[in-house]
Design a protein around this nucleic acid. Structure first.
Lengths: 244, 244
DNA sequence: GCGAATTCTTAACCTAAATCAATTTTTCTT
DNA sequence: AAGAAAAATTGATTTAGGTTAAGAATTCGC
């Protein structure tokens, strides 16, 4: 099948995620400096690790495409999932204070990332005050996001949590300019359950209910949202976690 | 009663909390610059606010003495408690990304804080790379701390949560050089319940149990730990939240 | 593309902690 | 220091979501 490949040279100046990455608010000259230190790696395939817990902390990673899961293991060796990262998200900020990565980060799908060596970023930031503000701002958002996630787990019912999760994924796709009522999400129900502090059985029961009520359908990694209004209602309240 | 008051002029160079504040790792000259921008306010009395949700974000606050509670209200107008801050802790980092404070911060006791105007801190940091690293590090710790708090709420039983909370308070006092088996903690059981996502009734029942088993005694804002080993056992696992 | 392994679903049952309710203790106000 | 208000305690009851179990649908590995 005739595949027309238009080749772009990837760089920060033409990256569609500029506004939500470190590049936000930088001048052209500073941008090209940031661009130089970014290490664009070949795509990771499903199951490949960005980093593992305990490895020496060297870089932050900006997700350009695909999806990344951040997790650790509990004392029973079960995965505890801390978050899913989609295009435009930065992975690794929780490890800045330490010599080592604090969690495991694995690709859930074919995934492209920009590697940003932290030492160099830090040096550059010393000359570019805007970049510092940008990093502070991202970290601060991460703190608030983390608090909001905690509220989700502690203040909401199982049904609200799941509805909210799916709704916020949809919003994220929307904000990135993708179709938000029908999209692929290569995340196991089991992993969603873990992230929302539920059992797979509970997730399954709720999805069956949503399906029966024609709210949405999630089968084989494909989500179709049939009734956005109803979904929002099940989620309860307005947006909480979702950035931008 | 004859009260001998030795008067120190408060400054960063003689502050006992230096090692856990922004001052950590700064040279003497930089330290005195930090010192100059710090605004030492008169003590707050119980119930006074450091800041309220929605107010313009201007400053970070370092707690020097007393205790501060960070909270917001849920949709039923009930307090949701996000944290308690003791001497050496920094309050307000979650608001850096925003124009406004994200939560309410109130003194639970007579409390002394250093106000650190963020704009000035940021300017100073532009000249003092060490200070930037220090801020990054504190923020990064806040993110990890927040993740650990979430684990506490979601992976542990009510009993483990309460045991862990009391144990970590004790550890904090120990690390600051205070008696850690008998100390005043001016926090309502109701607030601890909220922080641990429990009801006051559950907290009460667990405290009754701990009291009966001679693990500890918490009556009238005074905590006595009678059996540290047993308390640790009830907490399950090693330390999680507690910083330094 | 087929068989094995994983993941998902559905149903019956159970339990940790919430809720409801009534009393006692502590703290605040004057 | 007394009375009022707020907080804490204790017991009885309920419930959301976990656990166990067994079968069905997907996905993986060769």
């Amino acid at each position: 099948m005739g595949n027309i490949a238009i080749h772009y040279t990837a760089n920060c100046a033409n990256c569609g995620l500029q506004r939500i990455c470190f590049a936000n608010g930088l001048h052209d000259t500073d941008l090209s400096q940031l661009d130089e230190l970014v290490n664009r790696k070949p795509s990771l395939s499903k199951g490949e690790y960005l980093f593992k817990e305990g490895e020496k902390f060297t870089s932050l990673f900006a997700v350009r495409a695909g999806a990344v899961k951040l997790f650790s293991y509990d004392h029973n060796n079960l995965e505890v999932i801390h978050g899913f990262y989609l295009p435009g998200d930065i992975v690794g900020m929780d490890s800045i204070a330490y010599q080592e990565y604090q969690f495991y980060a694995v690709a859930l799908d074919v995934t492209t990332v920009c590697e940003i060596p932290y030492g160099q970023l830090s040096d550059l930031a010393a000359q570019v005050p805007n970049l510092y503000s940008q990093i502070f701002s991202l970290m601060s958002q991460e703190i608030v996001g983390s608090r909001m996630y905690t509220s989700l787990l502690t203040q909401k019912t199982a049904e609200q949590r799941l509805a909210y999760f799916i709704w916020s994924m949809s919003l994220k796709y929307k904000s990135r300019g993708y179709l938000h009522t029908k999209f692929r999400l290569n995340i196991l129900h089991r992993d969603v359950a873990s992230y929302l502090n539920l059992t797979p059985e509970t997730v399954s029961r709720i999805l069956a209910k949503f399906n029966k009520l024609n709210v949405l359908n999630w089968k084989k990694k494909e989500i179709s949202i049939l009734n956005e209004e109803l979904l929002k209602e099940f989620a309860g309240e307005e947006a909480m976690i979702c950035s931008e």
